[in-house]
Simulated assay, not measured.
Amino acid sequence: MNRRHDIDALRALAFGLLILYHLSMLYVTEWSWHVKSSYLSEALQIPMLMLNRWRMDLIFLISGISTAFLMHNTRIGDFLRQRNWRLLLPLAFGIVVVVPIQPYCEGVVNGVVQPGFVDFLARYYTAAPWPENAFAGWQHGYTWNHLWYLAYLWCYTLLMALLQPALATRAGQRLQAAFTGLRGTKLLLLPALPLLLYTVVLQPHFPGTNDLIHDWYMHAVYFTVFAYGWCLARSDALWAELLRLRKPALGLALGMGAIYLALVLRFKGDEEVSTATQWLIWTLRNVYVWTTLCSILGWSYALLNRPFRWLPWATEAVYPWYVLHQSLTVLLAYWLVPLHIGPVAEPLLVGVGTVLGCWILTSGLIVRTPWLRPLFGLKPHHRADTRAMASPA
């Protein structure tokens, strides 16, 4: 199987966008986060809102594509052993070693945790409940914060592996063909219908929590786009159709997004919105999300499917950067926000510091240290096999 450079590049870019998104969470007005700057921007809400609608859907879509490539010609047992090693080990290590700086900084800023990181860790590792609202996840005593993605991905990967016998049946093949056989307008609209159904039926009762157990609306959305990616991965005809539809998909995404945004701003703050209006907003939102994903896939296939010189490095670095970035961002903000150094210098230093920290720790330490590599989701050997379709996430 030929390596799909566009998927490698798109994965790296998607997680790079995630780093930028988390940096912006410091500054967007009305959106809570672990640490907040005093230099808040209401103007950030619009681009953040539109990005937030599809950023994680894109990551799970890419993960589904990567999973299909990884499962190709691999026994299910071997595949699951590899996935357990590369998902659960970094998750456990991240929860214990990388993430704790985030609840510490958040708890100190909230005035609930006393300064002193060693003392904090001594209590944190007992997993005892903390005072109310000490930090996100205080009820459980500890948190996985941004690493929730690894737990969700592990569950979806396990479920997809368990579904393989059913998908190999005639009924399963027909179900996959129903998706991979979509063309034209049907491809741009019909896959959005399940997402709309989940929004209408599940979202009012199960708002997003990232706690794995009660997150049924987000599970439905994320596993569906994960399954879309799995079906899409090896369908050359569907990739060709996405390539052909990339311009109409982009135009439809921009149009639906503009109307959706206009309605959201129009009814922002209204305590009650009519059922018809609410359904219209939900419909526009889900069509916007799916057409955006189609546009991204089509344009990346057209522009990124080539062996860029930076791609082998990015493919290997993306997993450690993902694990490290939010802890670095929160720590730098914890140090810099009280200094009030200005609305330009502060985000610049936090952003540059996050990137430099990820680069130094990854390229200077993690990839060069054999025992650290698996803790950050990397293969045990030093040089990544750029011929395999294995992906960190």
Rank of each mutant, 00 (worst) to 15 (best):
C105V: 10
Q114H: 08
Y104G: 04
L87A: 10
P90W: 02
V96R: 01
F120Q: 00
F69L: 15
V98T: 09
R75V: 11
V112C: 09
I76E: 13
L91F: 13
I76W: 14
P115R: 07
L89A: 06
I76Y: 13
G77P: 05
C105A: 15
I59F: 01
W85Q: 12
Q102R: 02
L121Q: 13
T126F: 02
Q114E: 15
V97F: 12
G107D: 02
A127W: 12
R75L: 09
H72C: 09
F69W: 09
L89E: 04
R81I: 13
V97P: 11
P115Y: 03
R86L: 07
G94N: 00
A68K: 05
W85E: 06
E106Y: 04
F120D: 02
G107K: 00
F60K: 00
L61R: 01
V112A: 05
F79W: 08
F60D: 04
R83K: 15
R83Y: 07
P90R: 03
C105M: 05
R75G: 14
A92I: 13
Q82L: 12
R86M: 06
A127T: 09
M71H: 12
L88Y: 10
I65S: 00
R75F: 13
V98N: 03
F79L: 08
G64N: 01
S66G: 14
Q102N: 13
A68G: 10
R83F: 06
F79V: 04
I101K: 01
V113A: 04
I101N: 03
V112N: 08
Y124D: 00
V97C: 14
N73A: 15
I65P: 00
Y124G: 08
F79A: 15
D119N: 14
A122K: 15
T67E: 08
P115D: 08
W85Y: 09
N84T: 12
A68M: 04
V118N: 12
P100Y: 01
Y125M: 10
D119G: 15
F117A: 05
R123N: 10
F79Q: 04
L88H: 11
V112D: 07
S66F: 05
